Amino acid sequence: MSHKIHRALLMAVMPMNWKIHHVKSVDSTQHLLREKAVSGADEGTVVYADKQTGGRGRQGRQWDSPTGNLYCSLLLKPECSLQEAGLYAFIVAVALANTIEDIIDTDGIQPKLKWPNDVLIEKRKCAGILLETETNSKNIVTHLFIGFGVNILPQEEGDRIGLSDYAEGVLRETVLNNFLKNLEYFINIYRKNGFLEIASAWRSYAFGLGERGRARTASGEYHGVFKDLDDDGALLLLLDNGDIKRITAGDVYFEK
């Protein structure tokens, strides 16, 4: 069962003062947002572009960014540890899943969240998330740059899929505005109640939970069953020898 928002609750959360900036073309919305932060941009600053010429994902991977999809970055100033800042990837993912689920609104089809940062529809990638940080001399995160891309254009083949494959007349601005409302709600849930409710919501969308897979990390490759999400967002992999391996960074692939 998904963790969809009760809309009345949106009225009860602390408002976030989003300041939205639109540009036609940019090398990267993350880069542009960093420039705005240097100039003193407030928390809640949002930039989105029609096109990116140098879009990127995790680990510096290129993100193909043709005109028509949503490419966006937003700024938070959480004043937290690096470990806690990483939890915002799950908050963003749940907000995106809620947004996408409302838009596609198709019986039997639910977006899925693939650890650590992808949103899938029917096993094809619809959206991705990128977190970058700046810290002070005490290693406290002062700026959290959250980048995400959502495929809106129809995707006829390959491992990607777009919202327009399921719904007509999808507008980037509608996706963005609905996402920001959902994100605001889940940020407030997290700041009031901690990560447990976010983790529960993430599990309700989890791709591959209970299935066999492999995790490729800097220390090696591990095979086992995706058992759960740990309290700090780590993936818990039940290895064939019965041990539990905590995966905190890397890529996960499932056999099905």
Rank of each mutant, 00 (worst) to 15 (best):
A97P: 04
L76T: 11
Y71K: 06
N98A: 10
L75G: 02
C80S: 14
C80F: 09
S73C: 10
L70S: 05
L74E: 11
L74H: 07
Y88S: 09
E79L: 14
L75T: 06
A89K: 07
A93L: 01
V92R: 02
V94L: 08
Q83M: 14
C80V: 15
A93M: 04
N69M: 06
A85K: 11
A89H: 09
A85E: 09
L75I: 10
P78F: 08
L74I: 13
F90H: 05
L70R: 05
P78C: 11
K77T: 11
F90G: 03
Q83I: 15
P78W: 11
V94D: 00
G68K: 10
I91R: 01
A95D: 07
L82C: 12
N98L: 07
L82M: 14
L74T: 03
L96H: 00
G86S: 08
E79P: 04
G68Y: 07
A93E: 04
Q83R: 15
C72T: 09
E84C: 10
E84L: 10
Q83A: 15
F90I: 00
L87M: 13
S73P: 10
P78A: 10
G86D: 03
A97C: 13
A97H: 07
L96Q: 04
K77R: 15
E79N: 15
Q83E: 15
A89T: 15
Q83S: 15
V94M: 03
E79H: 15
L76A: 06
F90S: 05
L70Q: 02
L87W: 09
N98M: 07
A85W: 09
G68H: 08
F90W: 02
L74D: 04
V92A: 04
L70Y: 05
E79C: 13
L74S: 01
S81N: 08
N69Y: 05
A89S: 15
N98E: 13
L75V: 12
E79W: 14
A85H: 05
K77S: 12
L74N: 05
I91W: 00
F90Q: 02
E79V: 12
V94H: 04
S81K: 05
K77Q: 15
L75W: 07
C72P: 02
Y71S: 07
A93Y: 06
L96A: 06
N98C: 14
Q83F: 13
A97N: 04
G68V: 03
A93P: 07
